[in-house]
């Protein structure tokens, strides 16, 4: 882990630089090359700004709900036997295996057109990585450490919050980050059930005139990179300083 630390610090700088560079490149491309007249219907600042805000909103709500559900469920599953956790994971894996467009279609079928359907679908989609990493992270905490904690007279709650969660936090955060990036990318499909977001830009185009696709794609990936970066910052401030987790 010590070897990775300098790399981690470098990544803190590299991500914003890459995002800014690609946004500048996109801007120059749009300025310097001729586009269709009709592009201006979508490629104007009001339209794009609304779509960005919608996208962030859908993502934030879906990811927030997935985290609020996934973390506690993961904690409960990590305490329960395989008898409970196996079927739950079977269902969650199934949710993951269904193509994202399929889940959105189901969201449309049962919730209806619009942003709610998209959010429900995205939450289901985002849940698995969060839940799985929470369970794996908690279960991989060194049994010796847990036994010592129990023997010292720490209550199960004190062990969970004082020992297990801090030690599992790198794995849990990895799950959160995967899930967040997944949601940002998948939220482009919300367009198909009238959920709005940056998917609108991508859908407003065709293969012969790809300028809106390009704008949409660059904005979505910038958003994903920045979100992942931001969560990385949160992780750095919350995760304990540990030389070598699990080996004491």
């Amino acid at each position: 882990m010590t070897n990775l630390a300098p790399l981690g610090r470098l990544r803190l700088v590299i991500v914003p630089v890459v995002v800014i560079a690609s946004l500048v490149a996109l801007y120059l491309y749009l300025q310097l090359t001729p586009g269709r007249v009709t592009d201006a219907y979508v490629l104007n600042s009001t339209y794009v700004r609304t779509r960005i805000l919608q996208h962030i909103e859908i993502t934030a709500i879906s990811f927030g709900l997935a985290a609020v559900i996934g973390l506690p469920v993961g904690v409960l599953l990590s305490q329960s036997g395989r008898f409970v956790s196996l079927p739950v994971f079977a269902i969650a894996n199934l949710g993951q295996a269904i193509p994202s467009i399929g889940i959105l279609a189901l969201g449309f079928t049962y919730i209806g057109l619009g942003v709610q359907g998209a959010i429900v679908a995205l939450v289901i989609y985002a849940l698995l990585p969060i839940m799985r990493n929470t369970v794996v992270g908690l279960q991989s905490v060194d049994p010796g450490i847990q036994e010592a904690a129990r023997g010292m007279g720490m209550t199960p709650m004190q062990i969970l919050f004082g020992v297990k969660l801090p030690l599992a936090s790198p794995v849990i955060f990895a799950g959160l980050r995967v899930s967040l990036v997944l949601v940002i990318g998948t939220a482009t499909l919300a367009n198909f059930i009238g959920g709005g977001g940056l998917g609108d830009l991508i859908a407003a185009s065709d293969f012969y005139h790809p300028r809106p696709i390009l704008v949409g794609a660059v904005l979505v990936s910038s958003l994903a990179l920045l979100a992942d970066w931001g969560l990385g910052l949160v992780e750095r401030s919350l995760t304990p300083r540990v030389e070598d987790i699990g080996r004491t």
Partner: peptide, 29 residues
């Protein structure tokens, strides 16, 4: 809980908390 806190416990795997300093480990109880 009270019983365990009144008895010192040392195990082979030591079981120190890797995220806490030596001081904080000793101070746990």
């Amino acid at each position: 809980t009270e019983l365990r806190r009144s008895i010192g416990y040392v195990i082979q795997q030591v079981g120190l908390f890797p995220h806490l300093t030596v001081s904080d480990n000793v101070a746990t109880v």
